[in-house]
Amino acid sequence: MIAFVALLCWVSALLSHGLLQPKIQRLLGIGNRHGGLLQAVRCVLPVVALVVCLRQSMPLALLLWLGMFSLGGLLAGGVLTLASVRARKPRVGA
């Protein structure tokens, strides 16, 4: 459960981070909307994930937090890649 919550926090934080990047915004064809909210999510959720992970004993907590960053990053990257491929299709078709 702890790992799942930490993973969810990292995925959300990294998705927000991705959506704030100009290159990804261009790929998705979106503007810089909800910038403030995304920045807040990007800053707060990793800390929330750390607090959740710290409920475990020490080396495990840190390994879990860093491990969930890696897994969360892969998931968030996968979501953004799928979205960019979808966003590209109509343009290629046109």
Binding site: L14, H17, K23, I24, A76, G77, L80, T81, V85
Partner: peptide, 10 residues
């Protein structure tokens, strides 16, 4: 940091 999640398979 900016290109952390940048993957362009196309």
């Amino acid at each position: 940091v900016p290109d952390l999640l940048l993957f362009r398979p196309f």
